[in-house]
Design a protein around this nucleic acid. Sequence first.
DNA 1: CCACGTAGGATTGTCAACAATCCGCGTCTG
DNA 2: CAGACGCGGATTGTTGACAATCCTACGTGG
Lengths: 233, 233
Amino acid sequence: MDSDLEPISRRSTAAIIADRIRSAIMRGTFPPGTQLGEVDLAARLGVSRGPLREAMQRLVAEGLLRSERHRGLFVRDLEAADVRDVYTARTAVERAAALLLLAEPDRAPAVARLTTAIAAMEAAAAAGDAVALADADHEFHAELVAASGSPRLHRMSRTLLVETRMCLAALQQNPPPPESLLAEHRVLRDALEQGDAERMTTVLEAHMADAVARILDVTLVEPPESVDGALPA
Amino acid sequence: MDSDLEPISRRSTAAIIADRIRSAIMRGTFPPGTQLGEVDLAARLGVSRGPLREAMQRLVAEGLLRSERHRGLFVRDLEAADVRDVYTARTAVERAAALLLLAEPDRAPAVARLTTAIAAMEAAAAAGDAVALADADHEFHAELVAASGSPRLHRMSRTLLVETRMCLAALQQNPPPPESLLAEHRVLRDALEQGDAERMTTVLEAHMADAVARILDVTLVEPPESVDGALPA
DNA sequence: CCACGTAGGATTGTCAACAATCCGCGTCTG
DNA sequence: CAGACGCGGATTGTTGACAATCCTACGTGG
């Protein structure tokens, strides 16, 4: 353990608050569109408004919150275009991470971590626990990017994975078929293990495309339908 | 002009401050490693410490600043590993943006914007103005990603381009040969115009690899040189 | 002469109060 | 009766001051 004997709090409180709110958004505690009142949140977290505002700005920079001046902070609601955008960005990041990983000589530890995540997915699928399955899926991709050793890809990936969870939480129904999901992840791991870059990228892109299709097929709520050109002056 | 008759300030002041400091870092006004005192900065910008701290947290989230608790905020200094990381991330982002752009039917406006940037590069090269050349280079890649229409790729790209400028500013010497730089950018534009995805990605990756080599060849200051394994207990 | 402990100065972290702005509702007028 | 105007409540934006922490320099003891 290297987390012992550290000063009680090395991380800034703003970072802690940001983490807390981020996971709350991820878990669906704050559904998209909800307004986050500062005094309420500050009181609930036991901090003052100063650090809380700093944390909020951090989340705004990540694109998880949307700030309207003198109006308040709102959880960004993702539209169909956003779902596609999240997954194109994820594809770019994870593809790069996978290629970075494939260039490394010793991929055994990374493979082991992915295998662990897959095992968690299997257990969740067997138990029929959709939330745990999503957690394990999340962890798989997080480990994939983390193992690449690229701090920037890792940072981007974290935000993108949170947004992915926001999409999934918004439409909790629509059960993803666990067996095909598991099969895809196993193929990804095997491709990494065998150093097959072609297969890896191909499957990864298909995996992402599948996810987008699965999400958008059920919730084709193409957003406001504003008829711009038809408005008289 | 659509920037007229807007409320005097729609953007939050924290965002404005962040932009100001970001460009200051980019321009090399704050070299890597310098400490940014809050009271000093706040006084110089004419704001209080509250909004300034919010802006700082935003920049920390972007990875441009490093925060040490009770110590202060420092401009992150980029090491050799960071240079490589910035460029791998840039490759991932710009490749995805280019592919997105290639999938679009009408690429004429994007091509036009890239041509404008190339013209600016040509002018700067002719005048021997290295700063203007870097500006135009920056603009070329920013336009490339912006034209893709992906908000997330765009946001990532902005930070990465700032970090690129930090690398370049740190080692202002080492003149990049303008003619080859121009040639590479022209090839990128032509590939986009002709819809040649294969050529596009290949040249883009080579372009990035070239940049890394150019930067690291001169400043091979592999940082601390800590000899881990040789230390006696 | 070196190591330890301590005081000083400066900087960051946090807080509570003040000022500016916006939304909803009631009222008034054409 | 419909629309516009104005007011009250609530929320955000900003400010200044207070408290906690850290680095530097100095003095002391071994």
